[in-house]
Design a binder for these strands. Structure first.
Lengths: 200, 200
DNA sequence: TCAAAATTTAACCATTTGGTTAAATCATTT
DNA sequence: AAATGATTTAACCAAATGGTTAAATTTTGA
């Protein structure tokens, strides 16, 4: 493993665990088992190192989904597939939601927000929505509010993971299992919301 | 306004804006227009000052709901009422969700989690659930997953507020309006999920 | 009224922080 | 092998940080 890779791995860990303000350059150096000066040699400053990590992590997490999405025709199927695929990522990187949320909530630094690939959300949640609506395949909901809801239902438990672990007394393994079970539950909710009432 | 009140007000602002690690005692002192030594005179340390703020804020936000809740009989009505009431609070304190989430995600400090009044959630989401389920008034969903979903749908947009403001180009006022509209949308989702299918 | 207690101030302190520098070591090429 | 460039180290630095102290001022109560 090259020095640069060691730094990135250590920086990922520390930034994710401690947040930007909580992270210490010395700790990153220690975990990478290198001299602190090396951090600045490879990535001029703390800010630039963070930027690197953020960009990389976001790139990994977001756009992996939209590829196969296109093979699904109906809006409901698309959303269900999104949940399924997204949970695969979330279960693998359960700390990512908090990392992203706390970054975009950082004061005076709106430029991180602009790095989020939100095109893919539009793609998922607006593409086949209107055609399915017109053809009566789905119920008339507000597509924006619906999108926020699906993302909220999906992501929220990962933001409250420490609390859930503590309060209902579960470990990482059990949490993972709960989230696995959650997939079908959420897909069911989506179907119940979107399936039009039968006016027979 | 007493010195103590001035400190608390300033500390609230700074901790909420900057987070625990980002907050500076000097900035709190400046905003309160007092000497930095006063902070330590009134609240021995940064940690204890934070604790005070956290406790107070949590107390304000959480338990205000459950009072009137009891007057609602059915589970669906209870949940809808919860959403309505909770949004009143959220719209008033839109920064609270991130404040709480980032606190409970702080490493090595699980004791903040224990201060969250989670009894009231059980009260809301489990109380009339089973009786309504048995009498066939609601569909069979997993009550835990459902509770997490309702909270997720409700809270999530407030966690992504900076991103929403930036990405869809709205200001605080417009955000507030969107959230106001969201109430009915969410209540509708809840009804669609919980109302049993008519097997006539 | 006057002493004791509470409050406020300014100067100070030790430690930690992100960052720098210049020398040393290692690798590469000629 | 010598020179060149990349990498690594140790020592260092200025600024910022949370916290302290002792004196000064104000408030209180007997």
């Amino acid at each position: 493993m090259s020095t640069e890779e060691k730094i990135i791995k250590a920086a990922e860990e520390v930034f994710i665990e401690q947040g930007y303000d909580g992270a210490r350059m010395q700790e990153i150096a220690d975990r990478a088992e290198i001299n602190k000066a090396m951090l600045h040699y490879y990535f001029r400053s703390k800010e630039m190192l963070f930027e690197k990590i953020f960009e990389e992590k976001v790139k990994v997490v977001f756009p992996t989904i939209s590829e196969q999405m296109k093979s699904y025709e109906g809006f409901t199927d698309k959303v269900c597939f999104f949940i399924e695929q997204y949970y695969e990522i979330l279960i693998k990187y359960p700390y990512m939601p908090f990392f992203v949320i706390s970054t975009i909530n950082r004061k005076d630094d709106k430029h991180f927000i602009k790095k989020l690939p939100f095109g893919f959300i539009k793609e998922i949640f607006f593409e086949s929505f209107f055609s399915d609506l017109q053809s009566g395949k789905i119920r008339e909901v507000n597509p924006f509010q619906f999108a926020v809801s699906v993302m909220g239902m999906s992501i929220f438990p990962f933001l409250t993971r420490p609390a859930m672990k503590e309060l209902i007394g579960i470990n990482d393994e059990q949490f993972q299992l709960l989230m696995q079970q959650r997939i079908d539950e959420l897909k069911n909710y989506v179907k119940l919301i979107l399936t039009p009432t039968n006016h027979a």
